[in-house]
């Protein structure tokens, strides 16, 4: 390879992935904060969440945000999945994935022996978290559809165990995404090169 004329190394994250990542980040945050405001109108938790964690100002305002951002989230998410599946990128990045690999890399990470020399290669923990958050996001979208259209999309609502249960599933999926974000944002700050790579591509 060294005999070939030098050409710039391929980006760690292609432009399409970076743009889609940041659109998703913004849409997800709006969905979570407006969703928490909607939650506060009839809380599942023992008490409403603090206003600082919400947007929209009140139930009606929050629903306007939620039902606007949902289109951004869904269209961008569909683009990301079609792109990832058609280019084979999702398969290359996230597979193989096994419990043994996840546990091995989790142990290495906790004992400080997990290297990040090649940012284009995801370790077992990353593969598990990234595949997991895609799956959980799909559950959030499905349970959201079940709540939004329990008559027109009655089959989806039935799949979620009817309306009230769909609300619990939707909340649980949100909570799982928040947990993912806590880990994901922490890791990107611990390894700032990974944050830079998601902005500039390298």
């Amino acid at each position: 390879m060294s005999l070939l004329p030098s050409r710039p190394a391929a980006a760690i994250h292609p432009l399409a992935v970076r743009v889609s990542h940041w659109i998703n980040a913004a849409a997800t945050i709006v969905m979570i904060m407006s969703g928490l405001q909607i939650h506060n109108a009839h809380p599942i938790l023992p008490a409403p969440v603090p206003d600082a964690m919400t947007i929209g100002g009140w139930l009606g305002g929050a629903i306007r945000w939620h039902f606007a951002a949902m289109w951004v989230l869904a269209l961008n998410g569909a683009f990301y999945l079609v792109h990832g599946l058609s280019t084979g990128r999702l398969r290359r990045k996230l597979l193989p994935l096994s419990p043994a690999l996840v546990l091995r890399d989790l142990r290495r990470a906790l004992s400080g022996r997990l290297g990040h020399a090649d940012l284009s290669l995801y370790n077992g923990v990353q593969r598990f978290l990234y595949a997991g958050v895609i799956g959980v996001s799909a559950v959030a979208v499905l349970s959201g559809l079940a709540i939004w259209k329990p008559v027109q999309l009655g089959a989806v609502t039935a799949l979620m165990g009817d309306f009230d249960n769909a609300r619990l599933v939707h909340f649980a999926a949100m909570a799982a995404i928040v947990m993912f974000l806590a880990i994901h944002v922490s890791m990107s700050l611990i390894v700032p090169r990974s944050l830079k790579a998601m902005i500039s591509g390298r």
């Binding site: 306007r64 945000w65 039902f67 606007a68 289109w71 259209k149 329990p150 008559v151 027109q152 009655g154």
Partner: peptide, 25 residues
């Protein structure tokens, strides 16, 4: 204003999604 426009858009999407023969459970 943008949220107003999205709400109007959602009115149209829902009218389109509405099946006059589909019954509530």
């Amino acid at each position: 204003r943008a949220l107003d426009a999205m709400s109007d858009f959602n009115d149209r999407v829902q009218a389109w999604l509405f099946d006059p023969h589909r019954l509530a459970r």
